[in-house]
C-alpha cells in the first residue's frame, strides 16, 4: 500500500444511491445497487481528505491553459453526410431519428 486510505463517515444511504441512479438515468439491478452503496461510500471516504485544506480564498480552476475563446470564421462549409450519420440510428424514419415520445402518454 503506497498511498494510505482515509477513513471517514459513510454518507450515502441505499435511498441516496437509488436517487442518484435515477438522476443518472441508469437502470440498475438490486445487486448492483447493493454493491454500489458499499463502493461509493468507500470512495467518498477518500474525498474526506480534501476537508483538511482551507480553500475559502482559493479560486477554482476549471481549465488549465491561458486561452481566450477563439471563434472560427463564419463561412459555409460541408456538414457530415446525413446518410452516414443516420446509418447509426437505432430507429429512423427517412432522414429523421425516431425519438421516444416525451410528452403526453396514455
Amino acid at each position: 500500500m503506497v498511498f494510505p486510505y482515509h477513513r471517514g463517515m459513510a454518507t450515502l444511504t441505499r435511498a441516496d444511491v437509488e436517487h442518484v441512479a435515477h438522476l443518472a438515468r441508469l437502470g440498475l439491478a438490486e445487486h448492483e445497487l447493493t454493491e454500489l452503496e458499499g463502493q461509493l461510500n468507500h470512495i467518498l471516504e477518500q474525498y474526506a481528505k480534501l476537508a483538511e485544506l482551507d480553500t475559502d480564498d482559493i479560486p477554482p480552476t476549471a481549465q488549465v491553459i491561458d486561452l481566450e475563446t477563439i471563434l472560427r470564421d463564419d463561412v459555409v462549409r460541408p456538414s457530415l453526410d446525413p446518410a452516414a450519420v443516420l446509418a447509426n440510428a437505432p430507429e429512423r424514419d427517412g432522414d429523421f431519428f425516431v425519438v421516444p415520445a416525451i410528452l403526453g402518454g396514455d
Binding site: V20, A21, L26, E32
Partner: peptide, 15 residues
C-alpha cells in the same frame, strides 16, 4: 444505459 455500460463506468457516472 443500465445494460450498455459496464461496472466501472456506472461507478464513475454515479460518483
Amino acid at each position: 444505459r443500465g445494460g450498455g455500460f459496464g461496472p466501472e463506468v456506472k461507478r464513475r457516472i454515479m460518483l
